[in-house]
Amino acid sequence: MSASETVILDQAGVNRALTRIAHEILERNKGVEDLALVGIRSGGDYLAGQLQARISEIEKVDVPLGAVDITMYRDDLAARGNLPVGKTDIPFPLDGKRIVLVDDVLYTGRTIRAAMDALIDLGRPRCIQLAVLIDRGHRELPIRADYVGRNVPTAQEEDVKVRFDDTHHPIEVKLVKP
């Protein structure tokens, strides 16, 4: 059987979701004070950049932006074989910051666990919040998102793919059925 793909969020839909999340982040944190965005490579870092641009449009302030690579913190390194290690790049002190961790798809929660471990190794943020474009369910750890673009019920054998163009702008989100 060939794989079938359904677009579950088109470009306009992704953009509207990101704009809403940007507003929600500002509302929840009462502005941009001590706020910083950290995207999870790869995918989440592009979305974090999108959120930064939107927050900058609304508040006229560039909040600090970082990226975290979680390869070194994975719990399935032996099973996955060795993966290329990306760069963690957080050009600001984390201590006392309100960190919004950004990822494209929230699934088992293991990536988020690894990213939180990575952040806590780098400093002591005041709090960590989680923003995701898609929450597809099937959590294996007690983790939930504070900001969700869209909840998508999925089967475990399905796959959710967020496509980006060459300038790292999101194009669409697809549900791939095997």
Binding site: Y73, V85, K87, D117, D121, L122
Partner: peptide, 23 residues
């Protein structure tokens, strides 16, 4: 090339205050 690229990423760990990852 892969080993060199990985080493470039590892350098970031060596510049941290807490120079340890659980890998």
């Amino acid at each position: 090339e892969l080993l060199i690229a990985t080493a470039e990423s590892m350098r970031e760990i060596n510049s941290r205050d807490i120079k340890k990852v659980p890998t």
